[in-house]
């Protein structure tokens, strides 16, 4: 297992979301994404535990790309990953953020 953490500046959320959201399952080739509101001056913090070693730069690229297209802020994102592909990661992030912002 490898632990990764990333910090993105994000955009301040107005108003802040009230409820956390979880999507996905920690099954082989899949992951779970937990999104929680967390006041952090607009920042977005991501913590990842992944079964695949040495993919830090790819995670960073996938996350950066995702947040450019879907700006969020004041969130904490926690991921348990069992070897998902970047496409699956993007899909789950999308589902999680969509559901999170719906509940705002």
């Amino acid at each position: 297992m490898e632990h990764l953490s990333f910090h993105f500046d994000g955009v301040p959320s107005v108003p802040p979301a009230a409820k956390s959201v979880i999507v996905g399952v920690v099954a082989s080739g899949n992951l779970e994404v937990l999104v929680e509101p967390m006041p952090a001056e607009g920042a977005c913090n991501v913590e990842i535990d992944t079964a695949s070693q040495g993919f830090g730069p790819i995670w960073e690229a996938v996350l950066r790309d995702f947040f450019e297209r879907h700006p969020v802020g004041d969130v904490r994102i926690s991921i348990n990953d069992a070897g998902a592909t970047p496409a699956t990661v993007s899909l789950r992030l999308h589902q999680a953020i969509e559901s999170f912002t719906e509940r705002r």
């Binding site: 297992m1 399952v25 535990d49 348990n80």
Partner: peptide, 17 residues
């Protein structure tokens, strides 16, 4: 985050539930 401490010890993926 009530995850399994035993899976962590074995270096296996955990789930938050």
């Amino acid at each position: 985050r009530t995850v399994s401490p035993h899976l962590k010890v074995l270096d296996l993926p955990v789930a938050f539930d």
